[in-house]
Design a protein around this nucleic acid. Sequence first.
DNA 1: TGCATTGCTAAGCGCTTGCTTAGCTTCGCG
DNA 2: CGCGAAGCTAAGCAAGCGCTTAGCAATGCA
Lengths: 199, 199
Amino acid sequence: MSAVTSPLVWEHVQPAAARRLLTGAIDAFAERGFQATTTRDIASRAGMSPAALYVHYPSKERLLFEISLYGHRAALEVLRDADKGDGPRDRLSGMVSAFTTWHAEHHTIARVVQYELAALTPEHLAEVAAIRRAISAQLEQAITDGIADGSFTVDDLPGTTLAILSLSIDVARWYSPTRRTPSDLGTLYADLALRMLQA
Amino acid sequence: MSAVTSPLVWEHVQPAAARRLLTGAIDAFAERGFQATTTRDIASRAGMSPAALYVHYPSKERLLFEISLYGHRAALEVLRDADKGDGPRDRLSGMVSAFTTWHAEHHTIARVVQYELAALTPEHLAEVAAIRRAISAQLEQAITDGIADGSFTVDDLPGTTLAILSLSIDVARWYSPTRRTPSDLGTLYADLALRMLQA
DNA sequence: TGCATTGCTAAGCGCTTGCTTAGCTTCGCG
DNA sequence: CGCGAAGCTAAGCAAGCGCTTAGCAATGCA
């Protein structure tokens, strides 16, 4: 089984051959990086000849863009779904826990999402960058609310927001499922984030 | 001026042509990644023909290894030099501040050090991995001492150590000198780390 | 039944890659 | 002066790259 087919649902990608190419590309990009991955490698993971890739995607970069766009949207959705609970402490704890858990659980796609931005065309990068700003804004709002109601004490709002986000994102770089479960890590990181913000 | 020639001292690399190739390679690897960088690009940054590279280095990978090895040694040295002060709180604060500042100040070489490990041969990776373990051990010792004398309260020692390290390392991914100075960031991160550990 | 559409393969094109070869110049040193 | 070593360039090689072309089989609809 591929490293990503199970946890994330890719049924919206049709037909099945296009989906096999996409999940194969995620695994290959995560293992070797976009530049070191060949179209022949992606095609053979999907059980096809190299030319078949171009029936479904116009270029290797477009494949990366589809992955990056879907991954960013999924991460933002996870964060927004978790932005609930009573008061800023609960909201922030839920968001950090969910966002961290997602990066651990889906570290394969998260690696592509976070470390292959430079391989996108400027137009595609701009589209993805807008989602990244929304992610940051979502977290910053909860921290701002927490400062206003006295739940948090923060010297440097943008710096601290970036630090908490950065902590979760970097999980994609080092995470391996052998030591800890994604949700255990989410719990730990939510606690660390609350400590960073405490009044 | 190259992005890295000024802050780090490369005089130990002789002759000057080998040094120009090395600093050119750092800039190129940091900008585009190892795989996307051509030997022709590195050579032209050094003002030479492609073949001249092979007078000084046997392969493109060897150039990466020299950079990675030197960068890891420099990071470990920065951490060890900062491991002083009265008690675990001062020691930890100094180390996080110095390590973070180094990753911001030298974000160009730090990017190569942290994100191009996969391009090293297994033998070269093993050599560099030993230094990475020493970096982690250095930080963990100060936290362990702080738990023992009651300065810190930590639920998950390896997890918290990894989180603090990860926070500093991820600076290399996003840092740009336009918003904050490296030392301001070091100060902020030292404060956040102490909050994460507080009794 | 006829025929366009979809999904695929075998072959290969033009180009770029890391690296090599052959040969030139400059320099230090007896 | 004689000569080997060091440092460089022009040219190019074999391999691999992203992507294209031509054509075949299966499908669905008139």
